[in-house]
Nucleic acid binder design. Structure first.
Length: 272
DNA sequence: AGCGGAACCTGTCGGC
DNA sequence: TGCCGACAGGTTCCGC
């Protein structure tokens, strides 16, 4: 489900809704997300800590707690955080409840149970965070960095963009959309992109991510905001999921191919 | 280094 | 109606 813009949307909304709240109780209905951790140990780690703020790194959501702990979450395909008034009982896909000190409920729900929640004392103790590459909306992500990094790999560009060890936060939707906007084929080897192409790719990456954040992310089926509203960027997609539809630029039918067991959508005429 | 394939899960949809 | 395969905003591990 969520890529950088969706996680950023959730981060901002959680900051608005639950910053400063204290966790009074943790209910675990299904513990898949906790890995090997027992629900009791997990709950003990969080008990009575304050949610000081929420941040994002790549596609990870990070709750900064006081006294100091970090709850590091990955929503994978179908994970969601919803803030609601107290409920009588869990809905079928509710996996955890965090009861907060103002009476509201922070719900973690996840249809496919692929999401992960981890508590650490220092962020550097999280192996998954340590693996992540550059933040595409940071100043460090510049055309020079991109040109240099692309030159060191022969991987097909779409795969390259989705590798979280290189750039953190791009997934299947935005990789396709960025490549379309930049007019570059998803199958081109990374090191075949010249400086001008890298510069376009850099510009479109920033532009599309920013626009998607402004539209509160993309809802195809599952993604929901903290208040259960959908995002709006699905109305602005140019190629993702548009197999057979005319390319918005040249009217050539959009094509779907498989790369790394994922669908890639592109225009075979505009993207070279 | 990097690919394909499978695994982790559940749900939905289309075809027969 | 019901069964089966394909597919889904993700990541990781294994073998080659």
């Amino acid at each position: 489900m969520p890529e950088l813009p969706e996680v950023e949307t959730i981060t901002r909304e959680l900051n608005r809704r639950i910053r400063g709240r204290r966790i009074e109780k943790v209910h675990v209905f299904r513990a898949d997300a906790l890995g090997n951790r027992s629900p009791e140990a997990f709950a003990d780690d969080l008990y009575r800590r304050e949610i000081h703020r929420v941040s994002r790194r790549g596609k990870f959501l990070i709750f900064h707690l006081r006294p100091r702990r970090y709850l590091v979450c990955h929503l994978r395909m179908t994970g969601k955080f919803i803030v609601t008034a107290p409920l009588r009982g869990p809905h079928p896909h509710h996996r955890l409840w965090f009861a907060l000190d103002d009476g509201s409920l922070l719900v973690f729900q996840d249809v496919r149970c692929l999401g992960t929640l981890e508590v650490v004392a220092r962020l550097s103790a999280s192996a998954s965070l340590e693996r992540l590459g550059i933040e595409p909306l940071s100043k460090d992500f510049c055309p020079e960095w991109l040109t240099e990094a692309l030159g060191r790999s022969r991987t097909p560009l779409k795969n390259w963009l989705m590798d979280q060890r290189r750039i953190a936060g791009l997934g299947n939707i935005y990789a396709s959309e960025i490549l379309f906007a930049a007019g570059i084929s998803p199958t081109r080897p990374a090191d075949s992109i010249d400086e001008e192409g890298a510069s376009r790719l850099h510009g479109m990456t920033k532009r599309i991510l920013r626009m998607a954040i402004r539209k509160n992310g993309t809802t195809i089926s599952d993604f929901r905001r903290v208040d259960e509203k959908t995002g709006e960027f699905q109305n602005f997609l140019q190629v993702y999921g548009k197999t057979g539809e005319p390319c918005p630029r040249c009217k050539t039918p959009i094509v779907r191919i498989r790369q790394q067991q994922r669908s890639t959508f592109y225009c075979p005429r505009c993207q070279l």
